[in-house]
Write a protein that binds this DNA or RNA. Structure first.
Lengths: 349, 349
DNA sequence: TTGAAAGCGCTAACAA
DNA sequence: TTGTTAGCGCTTTCAA
């Protein structure tokens, strides 16, 4: 007769499992955690009790003693507009989720609505809810890095942070696409097609993905006309605005390289409205190969593909590696990773 | 001299706060939790100690005794394709996140990749990681409801579950848009425009959002030609396929009501390819008013808007209410909620 | 190979 | 109004 009958409505504890299997709590714990040195016969009995009782370990109790939560925070701080119009985030989260799941780690999503939210985020991270963090799209003055540093939370960034000059010095680890190289390839391609006035619709220049792509454009066209560069904001509307600006400014460009597909779509729309044929009059190249935007565009977009889901997986993998290396505390993370891009040819250029 | 010096690298505990403030742990706890009956002077001293030490309560310890985690799971089980091409989810998550944040509740994201994942989900929910769950897009045979029922996890669904005939009987609570009413409005509008052969591109008929919209279409056209109905899958490609089918089948429709905007976009593309003018030859109406798809479409889509973010907020609110009512255990949730839709007129019809 | 026992940090009776 | 105390369910020495 087990003396530890579970209270009605509550879940069975390890104590109950132990009692049912006729062993001590310690032994039951060993079996649950797959530790060595338990006689197979005993282990089997424990497993049977676990099955019978439908036992599931209580995470809070476990965390309290191990100081590990088995959870990772994903922090997304991005103005409303972009999160929704850009499939980028959901794709990357998908990659992250796959990798975390494969390692029995949970994903806690923290959406930052406004600046004041950072207090909440800091409290949350410091409260021991998660073992590490993944963060995206940092602007130059983002308070997150100083927070994670202060509380010693291992963090991997998606996209090169604005304050990092080159590759991962100062201990910041990140995963990014080869934005600069991809941009170079796009512009070179347009050049090879015989285009001579190649414009660029840049993203918001407080984001490194935007500046890196602009840098790539300039690498190929170092003596380009500055009037051929307009700044957008990574949205369709912004792309349209920039395209209109470009057309109004002076001699018509015969090609446009937009820093993402959404802006390229906006450009397409303006070109159509103005009666310009794509690619005959103006060739258009985007960036991202965003699903379904790029393929569904009219005409379908030639664009620079980046493996977004793969980048997400990579971020998770780097973080998990860091966590395995040091249970908690200072970073000391290894280098960052730059993933390759590839030009995808469709009808727009 | 406080005898409880925090171990190096670890965070200060309530014990340390109490020692520094010269009170007992219980009193410190009362201050942290804003309980009544602590002299202001004492409370101030405790708060000062909290500030000085940078104390943040340990969630695991708290959860262990209160049996509350302050976290809610959001479970998304949807084939890859749709999650990424449809802004629906990110929008709804946004609404959920806002509401949860406002109530100091965390959002744990569980993405279901395949059927086998449900074991993991069940273990997770049973492990006391979260107080409740929000789930989406249940197909008729989804195993989730039986799981949440078995382990007594309060759950609110997004979209009417397939096994529910009408409104929230059998204790299932959900939030859904007025799919049927919205569909009726769309079809009536086309009728009012003088359209006579109105086709419908339905969504996958194992989802209630698809069947409800089809029902709305049939409400208005009870004697319609069955050849005017084609089934899609809520993707652009599926919409294109269905539109092609419709055109190949027989007398050309002069209007199409697609069950979502993505499929409407696909239809638009096929119509354009076949040299049919929209809306002159064929009027097109979508559903969702998806950002940026509907507005960016060519021509911009007339569509049925639903307040997706609001639905997300509502889901969270219902769940939080249920959690407040009963700390844990059986459901007994109040009724479900149907939110209104509105026709948005643009150029396509 | 197993068990006894000491906490992890916190809340919540109950006493004072 | 405050303090003492008994756990919450688990892991992990340490001894047997």
């Amino acid at each position: 007769m087990p003396e530890q009958l579970p209270a009605p409505g509550s879940r069975p504890t390890l104590e109950a499992v132990a009692a049912r299997a006729g062993v001590s709590r310690a032994t039951a714990s060993r079996v649950v955690n797959g530790a060595e040195g338990v006689r197979t016969h005993v282990a089997d009995k424990v497993r049977e009790a676990i099955r019978d009782l439908g036992y599931v370990p209580n995470q809070a109790a476990r965390t309290l003693v191990t100081r590990r939560t088995g959870a990772v925070a994903v922090i997304i701080a991005e103005p409303e507009v972009r999160i929704f119009s850009d499939p980028f985030f959901s794709r990357q989260i998908r990659g992250i989720s796959k990798e975390l799941t494969a390692h029995d780690t949970q994903l806690v999503l923290l959406l930052v609505e406004d600046r004041g939210d950072y207090d909440r985020i800091e409290r949350y991270l410091a409260g021991g809810h998660v073992d590490g963090a993944l963060a995206f799209s940092l602007h130059t003055d983002d308070p997150l890095p100083s927070i994670t540093r202060r509380i010693g939370m291992p963090t991997v960034y998606g996209g090169r942070p604005g304050w990092t000059a080159g590759s991962g010095e100062d201990g910041v680890e990140y995963v990014d696409a080869d934005n600069r190289g991809g941009a170079r390839e796009a512009v070179r391609y347009l050049l090879d097609q015989g285009r001579r006035r190649i414009a660029h619709i840049a993203g918001p220049l407080d984001q490194t993905s935007a500046t890196d792509r602009l840098d790539g454009y300039r690498d190929v066209l170092p003596d380009g006309d500055p009037a051929l560069i307009a700044e957008g904001d990574f949205t369709t509307a912004g792309g349209a605005r920039a395209m209109a600006e470009l057309l109004d400014r002076g001699p018509r460009p015969d090609a446009v390289f937009a820093a993402n597909d959404l802006m390229a779509t906006g450009a397409l729309k303006v070109l159509r409205e103005r009666g310009l044929a794509v690619p005959r009059d103006v060739a258009v190249v985007g960036f991202d190969d965003a699903e379904p935007v790029a393929e569904a565009a009219d005409p379908p977009l030639t664009t620079v593909r980046q493996d977004i889901e793969g980048m997400g997986r990579l971020m998770a993998r780097l973080l998990l590696r860091a966590l395995a290396a040091e249970p908690q505390g200072a970073h000391g993370l290894p280098g960052s990773v730059i993933t390759p891009t590839a030009l995808v040819r469709r009808a727009s250029a």
